[in-house]
Amino acid sequence: MGKRALGWITFVMVLVATYLVFMWAPNERIMGPVQKIFYFHVASAWVGFFAFLVVFIAGLAYLFTRKEKWDIIGASSAEIGVMFTTIVLITGPIWARPTWNAWWTWDPRLTTTLVLWFIYLAYLLIRSSIHEEEKRARFSAIFGIVGFIDVPVVWFSIRWWRTIHPVVVDASGFAISSKMVTTLTVSLIAFTFLYFYLLVNTALVEKMRAELRRLKEGVYQ
């Protein structure tokens, strides 16, 4: 029941956000329509970071409670987080090429996102290379925690690294109108709902997978 409602809310929110982005929000004066990618780009980045925060919390919760539920939440969240971070890394260059005239710059935000992406790919790799359920849950919880602790260190080191070099592009600036702010807020909310909807469904699949594995083991023993 709750899942259904969540699905419908997500559907409506995403529709509204899409309408606002393409029909309602004004075109940016200098960048033109390409700036509209901003609403999806920023919202995906937010969901990506949020997903990794959830992995961290689920890791801690698993180590303290040892409930399978937390492992499933962590695993699902990491998968979704990697997916949205991939979207960020794809939409970023598409937006950067016409506006900054470069596909990629080693700007702190870009670089940190890339490193984050690598860290959570490693998380997924660890999961896929351990078969014992309990061990997989424990190890990935540990790595989720250690990886998340690393993120602020990555951010600061890359920021200092870049300030030494000349700043090629100024990322700070375009004038943002109130309509744009509203649109961005709505798409952030829509993506957050989308995140939770995906999380519920991925967790369900993970749970069924675990059950199936247990059934199979029961049959063969």
Binding site: A122, L125, I126, F139, F143, D150
Partner: peptide, 27 residues
């Protein structure tokens, strides 16, 4: 110690170690 318990430890270690030590290497 984490990687040694997995089935492909020697390939896994560099992949999980290098992303985490990036700030250290930069510094």
């Amino acid at each position: 110690a984490l990687a040694v318990n997995t089935k492909n430890s020697e390939i896994l270690l560099p992949i999980i170690l290098f992303p985490l030590v990036i700030p250290l290497l930069i510094a």
